[in-house]
């Protein structure tokens, strides 16, 4: 499989990365090189093989239901580029 420039643009859009015309061309080449390289995985016979879900076999730890966090709005917005009254501010969203 090799990607065309339309695919590069679609993927960049999905990833929310603006790309210039030049970048599209460069990325196309790089992506194809990498995809060409990983293509060889197709030759491995994986019939009956489970995909890996956790590399270290163990039971997932769980928490009991208790309020142990929160009440730190100041910390939550401390690094935000734009805030007001502990809200984050973003360019207006239309639904």
């Amino acid at each position: 499989m090799s990607v065309d420039t339309a695919t590069v643009r679609r993927v960049a859009r999905l990833a929310r990365i603006a790309v210039s015309e030049d970048e599209v061309a460069t990325m196309q080449g790089e992506l194809n090189a990498i995809l060409g390289f990983v293509e060889q995985l197709g030759e491995v016979d994986v019939s009956g093989v489970e995909p890996m879900t956790s590399v270290t076999p163990m039971v997932m730890k769980k928490r009991e239901d208790a309020v142990t966090d929160g009440h730190k709005a100041e910390d939550i917005v401390a690094n935000a580029p734009a805030t007001q009254e502990h809200f984050f501010m973003v360019p207006k969203v239309v639904e």
Partner: peptide
Amino acid sequence: EPNDNVSLV
């Protein structure tokens, strides 16, 4: 209050 019931997660 805004962002009060919010953890770092």
